[in-house]
Amino acid sequence: MSARYGGLLHLAAALDQPGAPGTESFVELARLAERGGLDFVTLDDSAARPGADALGVLCRVAPATRRIGLVPTVTTADPEPLRAQGAVATLDRLSRGRAGWRLDLGAPGRSFEGEAVPDRWFEGEAAPGRWFEGEAVPGRSLGGEAVPGRSFEGEAVQGRSFGGAAGTGGLSGGGRPRWGDFTGGAFPGQDPPAAPRPPQGRPVHVVDVTDDHARTVAARYADVALVRATTPVQAAGERDRLLEQAGSFGRRPGSARILVSLLVDLGDGERAAQPGHGGGGPRPTGRGPLYRGGPVDLAELIAAWHAAGVADGFHLVPVEPRRDLERLVNGTAALLQHRGLFRTFYPGSTLREHLGLPRPVTPYATSGATLTTTDRI
Rank of each mutant, 00 (worst) to 15 (best):
L325C: 00
L29N: 04
V296F: 10
V361S: 10
A334K: 13
C59M: 06
E133V: 03
R60C: 09
A146V: 12
A87Y: 00
V317R: 15
P358D: 13
G19R: 01
T75W: 00
V117I: 14
A225P: 05
G279M: 11
F314K: 07
H354R: 08
T374H: 11
A299M: 07
L325M: 11
D297Q: 15
L70H: 06
S25Y: 03
A14M: 11
A146H: 06
D119G: 08
Q158W: 05
G164C: 07
I68R: 03
Q158M: 10
P282S: 09
L94T: 06
G51L: 00
E123M: 13
R130G: 10
V233Q: 14
D212H: 11
G276E: 06
Q85C: 03
D45C: 04
A116T: 14
E238I: 03
G280W: 04
G174M: 03
E153W: 13
E326R: 15
A84M: 08
L242S: 01
L262R: 09
G313Y: 00
P63Y: 13
A47E: 14
G279I: 00
W179D: 01
A225L: 08
E113G: 10
A225F: 06
I68Q: 09
R67N: 04
Q158V: 12
V310W: 09
R93K: 02
E28M: 02
G97E: 02
L242Y: 07
A13R: 03
F187I: 04
M1I: 01
E24C: 03
E135D: 14
A54Q: 06
G134I: 13
A107D: 12
L266H: 09
T230Q: 07
G293M: 10
T75N: 02
A272E: 15
L357H: 09
P81C: 08
T216Q: 12
D39C: 14
R292M: 04
W121D: 12
Q85I: 14
D53K: 00
P289L: 01
P360I: 02
G109Q: 10
L15V: 05
C59S: 14
L9W: 01
F162P: 03
A303H: 06
G170F: 01
A273L: 03
S46I: 06
